Computed example of a mutant assay.
Amino acid sequence: MKPVTNRLESLDVLRGFDLFCLVALEGILHPLGRAIDASWYNDFLWGFSHVKWEGFSSWDLVMPLFMFMAGVSMPFALSRYKAMPDKWAVYRRIIKRVVLLWIFGMMCQGNLLGLDPDRIYLYSNTLQAIAMGYLIAAMLFLHVRLSVQIGTAVALLLAYWGAMQFISVDGYGGGNYTPDGNLAEWIDRTVLGRFRDGAVVENGKVVFAEYYRYTWILSSLNFGVTVLTGLFAGHILKSGMEQKRKWQCLLGIGAAMVILGWLWGLQLPVIKKIWTSSMVLVSSGYCFLLMGLFYYWIDYKGHRKNITWLKVYGMNSIVAYMLANVISFRCIGTSLFHGLEQYIGNYYSPLIAASNALIIYVILWLLYKRNIFLKV
């Protein structure tokens, strides 16, 4: 594994920021909230919690940002393949990535490593959403020009909206955007059946968990759009335009998308769990704004001090995600600090969460220092 050079540093740092929030911050702040148990802290935690249904919090941006950045990197990673008449090499690369992300997603949900056939859920994880979005965006990037890519993104947004608004089946759909009545929910229940996350079989009948309202199959159309919006940002960043013009474009496009998304949300609610088209515009707009700000500060202004710790997360993002979701290092913290529980009470749980996050960071730092960057 060779060292990575000539990279877009702002992308590595932004990806690192996203993974730091996902891998470390979330796991510490919520146990800390239970220990503090104060109304002011609970209000603060709203920004680090998902909204129940309609609306959008800052924490709801973590997953779209992860997907968006997969698109940003695409022009840098795949451009050399566009002119090749024989594209089997890149097809194999794409297929390998999609398959590995799908398997890793199942591992993160505990399905494969649980070794329990009753817990096999086929489509239920962020990595699988990235896989679907990446597949759609990569094929478009390799085979059609930018204007067609943009047109396809618009068509997918409208196709999702049209299906949700005008198709009605068994009492679902027809403009119903409630958790129990939307078309995407019906499609997932019908197609995935007992292989949907949270579903169990009782007396020969599939029973769906009341708490689980994420949808994946119809939402895949908009997973593709989310990655495509990152691809469009990547086009700008890789283009020959002046650096100042690049961050201005990113900020301008981001602001326009956010406004347009919230306006569309007056008719098509902004709902992350079913990945509505209005939510795609809102979240991708925020992603454009963040990408523009990070590019302005790091690549344009050249502020590179004290960012290495974020690059440690960002340059091994899949490893960081897998370590956080598949392996628990809490037993190490428990072994080292078990004697403190009697003295610090409710703060013991945040301490163990912090030790788990620290161990993951040390592993990532060791990989970074040795120029080991594991890619899918």
Rank of each mutant, 00 (worst) to 15 (best):
K244V: 11
L260I: 14
Y295A: 11
L293D: 01
G261C: 02
W264P: 03
K273G: 01
S284D: 15
Y295E: 10
Q267M: 09
Y295S: 09
M279S: 13
W297Y: 13
K244A: 13
L250V: 10
K246R: 12
V258S: 07
V270P: 03
L281W: 03
C287K: 02
K246A: 10
G292Q: 08
N306I: 06
D299M: 10
T276E: 09
E242W: 00
S283G: 10
W275A: 11
T308Q: 09
I236R: 02
G254Y: 05
G234R: 00
Y296L: 15
K273E: 12
L266D: 06
W262H: 08
G314H: 07
Y296W: 15
K246S: 05
L266K: 14
I274C: 04
I274P: 06
L281T: 08
G285Y: 00
K273M: 09
L260W: 09
L268N: 14
V282A: 10
K246M: 10
L281M: 12
R245Y: 01
K238S: 15
I259S: 13
V280Q: 01
G261Y: 04
I307Q: 12
H303A: 13
F288Y: 14
W297C: 10
N306K: 13
I298R: 02
C249A: 12
I271L: 08
L281S: 09
G302P: 11
K311S: 12
W262A: 09
G285P: 01
A233C: 08
Y286S: 12
S283A: 15
H303E: 10
K246F: 04
Y300T: 08
M241R: 12
Q267E: 12
V280C: 05
Y295P: 13
C249V: 05
Y313K: 02
L310T: 02
G261S: 06
F294L: 10
L290E: 03
Q267R: 14
L260F: 03
G254H: 01
